[in-house]
């Protein structure tokens, strides 16, 4: 069964045709990397799955976007807040709230009405452990999240996303602002999280796509040029444009 699927998906920003007839499916518990030059549509595609594009004026979406085989756009029973509980997101720059480490992770639980103290404490600990951050912060949970390093803040944001137990995690260049050690921790984390979550990651780092993903999709000018096993994309891609891009000879 496909966890996520788009069928003949077209997206327009006003008159600009940003995604052109994208048909693609993602299996559960896999990591899929979206690659391509800036402006190719990969972040737009990523944001489809938690309906982040809805906030942009003039957006028009045609086609089907399915989560667990249910359409998330043409579905009157689908509430956006319910969707975003199932689909978490981590952004390029760490964006912790101006709150304590504990309250950052507890935030999603509280806004969803889960306030029971022992339940919240347990979920915060579990999420921080899943994000490989617990050992570093367990003695300073009441300190400001801003006291953490950039890499720790990003793992905190991952813990915050995990706290509401989504099944899909969207990551938009989650390590591009981090040093190599923090990047390695995030990549190891992605590898671990794959067991429980379906992950889609946008990255400009080809080696990172190679290291973390099972499948890679190459986008160019709004088209999905090639979607294949990552090892095929990086050893013997089918499309000449993919080969030019991954070998750094594009344009």
């Amino acid at each position: 069964m496909n966890k996520i699927e788009t069928k003949n998906l077209n997206l327009y920003y006003g008159t600009f045709h940003a995604l052109k007839g994208i048909t693609m499916s993602v299996k559960a518990n896999t990591v899929t990397a979206l690659i391509g030059p800036s402006g190719c549509g990969k972040s737009t595609y990523l944001r489809l799955f938690n309906r982040m594009n809805d906030l942009i004026p003039g957006v028009k979406i045609e086609g089907d976007v399915l989560l667990d085989e249910k359409d998330i756009y043409n579905n009157k029973g689908m509430r956006i807040d319910e969707l975003r509980k199932k689909v978490g997101m981590v952004f390029q720059k760490p964006n912790p709230f101006p709150k304590s480490i504990f309250e950052n992770v507890a935030y999603g639980l509280r806004v969803n009405g889960m306030n029971h103290a022992s339940f919240v404490e347990e979920r915060v600990e579990t999420s921080l452990k899943q994000a490989a951050l617990w050992d570093e912060v367990k003695d300073k949970l009441k300190k400001s999240a801003f006291a953490l390093s950039g890499g720790q803040q990003q793992r905190l944001c991952i813990a915050r996303a995990l706290a509401i137990e989504p099944s899909v995690l969207l990551m938009d260049e989650p390590a591009s602002a981090l040093d190599p050690i923090s990047t390695a921790k995030i990549e190891d984390l992605i590898y671990e999280l794959k067991n429980k979550y379906t992950i889609i990651i946008v990255t400009h780092n080809m080696q990172q796509a190679g290291r973390v993903s099972d499948k890679t999709a190459f986008f160019y000018l709004g088209d999905l040029i090639e979607y294949n096993d990552t090892n095929i994309i990086f050893t013997n891609p089918t499309d000449p444009n993919t080969q030019s891009y991954v070998t750094g000879r594009f344009g």
């Binding site: 080809m206 190679g210 990086f234 050893t235 013997n236 891609p237 080969q243 991954v246």
Partner: peptide
């Protein structure tokens, strides 16, 4: 250089 695809081969 971490060569890939035809460069790696």
């Amino acid at each position: 250089f971490n060569p890939v695809a035809i460069d790696l081969r």
